[in-house]
C-alpha cells in the first residue's frame, strides 16, 4: 500500500519522509442487516497532521460516528465489516491484532463523545475514571495515577481539582463532564484526539469555553484533532481543513476558508445557505429540498442528485461520481463542480 502523503487536503505540508499522523484510505464499513449487509461508510479517505484539526461535517446518519469508531477499531466485530486502511504514524490499524489496538487506544488516540454525562461511568468517581487510564497505559502506581488525574482535571480548568476528583459524574454539569472526558482522553498525552460532536449537547456559552480549551490544549499537546460536527459555525471556528460527508461518502474536502467562501459541491453550498447564522432576519430561509436518504436507499449515480438543483438528468443519475481533485488541497464529488459558480459566505455579513 503506497503512502499517498502528497494528496493531503488542505495543503498541509507533509514533511518529507514523515508520514501524516492519521491517514485513512478507502475506508468502507458495512453492517449486518437481516440476512445481508448494508454499507454505511463508503470509500472514505483523508489525512490529518499533528497540531491540525480536520472537521468532519455531515447531517445525522451520514456516517461520521461510524467513521470515527472504525478508526478506533471500536465497531462490533461480529456484526460489522471494515475494509480499507487506517494508519496512525504509518502503523496500519485495520488488520492490527486486538491486543495491539487495545494498547493503542487511550494511549495514542483519545476520544470524546457527544453526550458527556452518559459517557462517564455513574458508579465511579471522576478521579478514578481518569487514574485508571494512567495506571493501564503508563503503569503508574495508584497514588501517582491519582495525582496525575488531579493534575489533568486542573489542566482542563476544573476548579479545586483535588476535591472534585472524589466526586461522581452526577455532581457535575454537562460542560464539566465533557472536560472530565477531555482530561481522560488526554491523560496519556496522545497524538490524536477524536472528538465526536463534543459540544452538540452543550449550551452555547459552555460550548465556547470548551472550544477555547480544546484549542489551547491542541497547542500545548501538539494534538491532531478529528473534529466531528454538523455545525458549520463550529467548523469555521475550529477546523483547518474540512471534509463534508453525505450518505456515507465524502462529497467535498478543502481548507476551511476555501470551503466556506467557495464551496465546490452543491450540497456544501446548500448547507451553507440554510445555515441561519448566515442569513440574518429573513422572510424565507434558504433550504435544501427533500430529506437525507436512508442508509440502504441511496440513489444511484450522484447520491445527492434527488435534492440537487443543478442536477443534470442523464448524467448525474446514472454513474457513481468520483471524488476528483480540484484546486490545491481540494476535492469534490460533483461532475459539474468545474462549471458551477456556487455561492459561499463572505467575510462580512
Amino acid at each position: 500500500m503506497a503512502v499517498d502523503a502528497t494528496a493531503a487536503p488542505g495543503g498541509a505540508p507533509n514533511v518529507p519522509g514523515r508520514a501524516p499522523l492519521l491517514e485513512v484510505d478507502g475506508l468502507t464499513v458495512e453492517f449486518r442487516s437481516g440476512a445481508g449487509r448494508v454499507r454505511v461508510v463508503d470509500d472514505v479517505r483523508f489525512t490529518l497532521d499533528r497540531g491540525r484539526t480536520l472537521g468532519l461535517v455531515g447531517e445525522s446518519g451520514s456516517g461520521k460516528t461510524v467513521t470515527s469508531l472504525a478508526v478506533m477499531g471500536l465497531l462490533p466485530p461480529r456484526s460489522s465489516w471494515v475494509e480499507g486502511s487506517v494508519r496512525l504514524d504509518g502503523q496500519e490499524l485495520v488488520d492490527a491484532a486486538g491486543a495491539e489496538l487495545t494498547d493503542l487506544r487511550g494511549r495514542d488516540i483519545g476520544m470524546i463523545f457527544q453526550e458527556p454525562r452518559r459517557s462517564l461511568n455513574p458508579a465511579f468517581t471522576v478521579g478514578e475514571q481518569i487514574a485508571e487510564i494512567a495506571r493501564r497505559h503508563l503503569g503508574l502506581s495508584r497514588k501517582d495515577a491519582w495525582d496525575r488525574a488531579v493534575e489533568m482535571l486542573d489542566t482542563v480548568n476544573i476548579a479545586d481539582a483535588a476535591r472534585r476528583a472524589r466526586h461522581y459524574p452526577h455532581e457535575f454539569s454537562g460542560g464539566m463532564c465533557q472536560r472530565v472526558m477531555l482530561a481522560g482522553a488526554l491523560v496519556c498525552r496522545p497524538k490524536l484526539l477524536i472528538a465526536d460532536e463534543p459540544t452538540t449537547a452543550l449550551d452555547v456559552t459552555v460550548q465556547a469555553r470548551m472550544l477555547r480549551l480544546m484549542n489551547e490544549l491542541q497547542a500545548e499537546f501538539d494534538l491532531g484533532i478529528l473534529f466531528i460536527t454538523h455545525d458549520l459555525g463550529v467548523v469555521a471556528e475550529m477546523a483547518d481543513d474540512v471534509a463534508v460527508m453525505y450518505a456515507g461518502e465524502l462529497v467535498e474536502q478543502a481548507p476551511v476558508d476555501d470551503l466556506l467562501s467557495r464551496p465546490e459541491h452543491p450540497y456544501t453550498a446548500g448547507l451553507l445557505g440554510s445555515s441561519p447564522d448566515v442569513q440574518g432576519h429573513v422572510e424565507r430561509l434558504r433550504s435544501i429540498p427533500g430529506s437525507v436518504p436512508a442508509v440502504g436507499a441511496w440513489p444511484a449515480g450522484c447520491r445527492f442528485h434527488t435534492r440537487c438543483e443543478h442536477a443534470r438528468p442523464g448524467t448525474c443519475d446514472t454513474d457513481p461520481v468520483a471524488l476528483a481533485d480540484g484546486g490545491p488541497g481540494r476535492r469534490a464529488r460533483c461532475v459539474r463542480s468545474g462549471e458551477l459558480h456556487l455561492e459561499g459566505v463572505g467575510v462580512d455579513a
Partner: peptide, 25 residues
C-alpha cells in the same frame, strides 16, 4: 451569549502559531 455564537464565516480559525502564542506555549 452573542459572543459565544460560532460564526460561519471564513477567517475565524486562528492559525496554530497564533493559538500557541495565545496559550503562551
Amino acid at each position: 451569549l452573542v459572543s459565544a455564537i460560532p460564526v460561519t464565516r471564513p477567517g475565524r480559525r486562528r492559525s496554530a502559531a497564533v493559538r500557541r502564542a495565545a496559550a503562551s506555549i
